[in-house]
Simulated assay, not measured.
Amino acid sequence: MANHKSSLKRIRANETRRIRNRYYAKTMRNAVRKFRALDNKAEASEKLPGLISMIDKLAKKTIIHKNKAGNLKSKLTRLVNKMA
C-alpha cells in the first residue's frame, strides 16, 4: 500500500478517471452498435455527424486512439454511402 498522501490521492484520481473513461467508451460503442443497426439511409446520414463528433471528442481526450477513431469514422461513412 502507498505511504505518501500524494500517492493515495493519485490512486483515487486514477480510479475515478478509469471509471469515467470506461463509461464514455462504452457509450460510444453502444452508439456505434445502434448506428450500424440502422437501415434507413436518410436517418443514418442525419445521425452520422453526431456520432463522428462523439468519436473525435474521445480521441481528443485519448480515451480511444486517434487511429481507431479514424478507422471507425471511415467505416461508418462507407456504411452510409453503401446504403440503398
Rank of each mutant, 00 (worst) to 15 (best):
L51R: 00
R36W: 05
T77N: 10
K68T: 14
N71G: 01
K5N: 12
N40M: 03
K9C: 04
A2T: 04
T27M: 15
G70Y: 08
I52C: 12
A84Q: 08
R22M: 01
T16F: 06
K66C: 05
D56W: 01
L76R: 02
A25P: 00
R36E: 03
E46P: 07
G50M: 13
V80D: 06
M83F: 01
R36M: 11
N81Q: 10
A59D: 00
E43N: 02
P49R: 15
K60P: 04
S74W: 00
K60C: 08
S6P: 04
T27I: 13
S74Q: 06
K26I: 07
R78F: 03
R22H: 05
S45M: 10
R18N: 09
A42N: 11
R18L: 11
V32G: 04
N21V: 07
K9G: 02
L38D: 00
A44Y: 02
M28V: 09
H65E: 15
N81S: 12
R36C: 06
T27P: 00
N71M: 02
M1S: 09
A25M: 10
L48S: 07
S7Q: 11
I19R: 04
A37R: 08
H65Q: 13
K68D: 15
A44K: 01
L72Y: 13
M83W: 03
S53M: 07
I52S: 12
R17N: 02
K26V: 12
K82T: 04
K9T: 03
A42S: 10
